[in-house]
Amino acid sequence: MAAGQKLYPRATVKKIVKAHSNRNVSKNVDVLIFLDYALFLQTLMKEATINAKQAGERGVSAKSVKKVTELSLAKFKG
């Protein structure tokens, strides 16, 4: 699915997590976090697509994304 993807900026993910948690991030955890993020993004886009279709939009609009953001975030609450 994500075959042709280039590597994501690992350092960035690490930095983000580090900044938010105020903790060190062990090696390679960022991969897992990125995996989680990918799952989240998938959920988000799926929901947004559903929402957009229900709203009769052609593409996925920012509005639909906004609408499902909270729901998706709630799903990914640890």
Binding site: V13, I16, V17, K18, A19, H20, S21, R23, I33, D36, Y37, F40, L41, L44, V65, T69, S72, L73, F76, K77, G78
Partner: peptide, 13 residues
Amino acid sequence: ASDWFFEQVSDDL
């Protein structure tokens, strides 16, 4: 949303 997600996840972690 991604930013929020990362913040949430980082908080939890």
